[in-house]
Nucleic acid binder design. Structure first.
Length: 423
RNA sequence: GGAGGUGUCGCCUAGUCCGGUCUAUGGCGCCCGCCUGCUAAGCGGGUUGAGGGCAAAACCCUCUCGCGGGUUCAAAUCCCGCCACCUCCGCCA
């Protein structure tokens, strides 16, 4: 239901190895294999009884007198047995499901083994800027430009909230437009999706497992606030069979993202690096599993293109197996250089979820050979807050003004420099 | 929020009152073949999806009439809950 049951049955060693490379126990694999056997046994038993019930049931309307009474007596007891067998089957099915749903996607053999710190740097793009003055951080620049109002964000909504005002708001709109423009010309369909979704969409994309702590739930409703538009975009085609010739299908969504940031106390406590809400333009592709690896590279290339247009220095990392999350088989992050932190911080992330989410959401393609689950991939094109942080800090000048990268100017009324506002 | 209605295998549709003969009707579209100077028309056949048995195929079986329960020997059909859509009223950007 989550990983391919066939792989589990026929190549459990592959799954065990992948678990190990994620730093997880492989015991669940053996438990799932056993549960699968039990499941199939109960199915066979139920189907045997049910077939008998059906064939007897057909004779009843034709039978008369004693013969009919006898048939009714037999089917009555059979009815109970069928019910019991059905209950046993759904129980075994549920047990199997629970186990198999808890197994993460089989990590790519190319993904580095290990945890969060075991990533591999694939490349560096651009040089971190050298300053001949003391650079200001984005909080101060945001205040000087009248672009980011953190104090009032906290007053109104609490910690990790902010207002974008003036050129800050302009900047977000410009980034959205630039991102959408690029996506559109790459063949993406622009989408503005719902940010509140039902449990199915959340669970189907793998966000209700260990990640559930980070998700906002609506009190008294069966609705969740999405942490990324990957959720409504993946669920968009749930329970559908897409024409194979229509692939790849590419969507670019603009939506807010909500994250509780549970367990991140003390991390990034100032500024807008880590916030409970931000807006994002997200790329999403549906394609075949075979094509997904090349599509993943394309998503990465589009992310790099966008960051390059903004004049940011960044590196690309190959995220380690243990840090892939539930759904991804491989993940690349682009991390931009943040001058006042002296380090690279994640700005974008692209994941190949192969057919993991498609199995949970039942998204299939129709091909000449039959129907198959598709692959889903997602990639950040522009996460507003962190991009604004990198932009302001990277392109600042000694007087607190900020040079606008050329690509952004057409979307900022032609402005070349953002000037501090008089206080 | 209130009242009423609808949901059938791609689309449309018969069947639901009165449970068994539904192994779900017919049309459109699509696929294969026949026929035909070409095309169209006509003729014949096929066309939901999932799961189990199997190394696989053939084949057999089970499930699938919005979803989930219940009643019954037996449910598309009767009962309950949920979901979606439509109409009207109220409210509202």
């Amino acid at each position: 239901m989550v990983i391919d049951p066939r792989i589990l049955r026929e190549a459990p060693d592959r799954v065990r190895a992948a678990q190990t490379r994620r730093g997880l126990s492989a015991d669940v694999v053996d438990a799932a294999v056993a549960a699968d056997e039990r499941r199939r046994a109960t199915i066979a038993e139920f189907e045997r009884l049910r077939a008998e019930q059906k064939s007897l049931g057909k004779q009843i309307p034709k039978a008369q007198g004693d013969e009919k009474q006898e048939l009714l007596a037999r089917t009555k007891t059979l009815s109970g047995e069928v019910k019991a067998a059905e209950a046993a089957q759904s129980e075994a099915e549920a047990a199997y499901r629970d186990l198999v749903m808890s197994i993460p996607n089989v990590a790519s053999e190319d993904a580095p083994a290990g945890g969060e710190d075991d990533f591999v740097v694939l490349e560096h793009v651009g040089e971190p800027r050298q300053f001949d003055f003391e650079p200001r951080d984005h909080v101060e620049l945001g205040r000087m430009l009248g672009a980011i109002d953190i104090d009032r964000g906290a007053k109104v909504s609490g910690a990790r909230f902010y207002y974008l005002t003036g050129v800050g708001a302009d900047l977000e709109l410009a980034l959205v437009n630039l991102a959408m423009e690029q996506a559109r010309s790459a063949g993406f369909t622009p989408v503005i999706p719902p940010a509140l979704v039902r449990p199915r969409a959340m669970d189907g994309t793998g966000f209700l497992g260990q990640a559930a702590d980070d998700v906002y739930r609506i009190e008294g409703e069966e609705l969740y606030l999405v942490g990324t538009s990957e959720v409504p975009l993946a669920a968009y085609h749930s329970d559908e069979i897409l024409d194979g010739s229509s692939l790849p299908r590419r969507y670019a969504a603009f939506s807010p993202c909500y994250r509780k940031e549970a367990g991140s106390y003390g991390k990034d406590t100032t500024g807008i690096i880590r916030v409970h809400w931000f807006d994002k333009v997200e790329m999403f592709s549906y394609t075949t599993v075979e094509e997904s690896y090349a599509e993943h590279q394309r998503l990465l290339a589009w992310e790099k293109e966008f960051l390059t247009k903004l004049g940011l220095a960044f590196r690309v990392i190959d995220v380690a197996a243990g840090d892939l999350g539930l759904s991804a088989e491989r993940k690349f992050d682009c991390e931009a250089w943040i001058p006042t932190q002296g380090k690279y911080r994640e700005l974008t992330s692209t994941s190949n979820c192969t057919d993991f989410q498609a199995r949970r959401l039942d998204i299939r393609g129709r091909f000449p050979e039959g129907t198959r689950h598709l692959a889903t991939l997602n990639g950040t094109l522009c996460a507003m807050t962190r991009t604004i942080v990198a932009l302001l800090e990277t392109h600042q000048q000694a007087d607190g003004s900020v040079v606008v990268p050329e690509a952004l100017r057409p979307h900022l009324q032609g402005r070349e420099v953002l000037e501090p506002v008089a206080k």
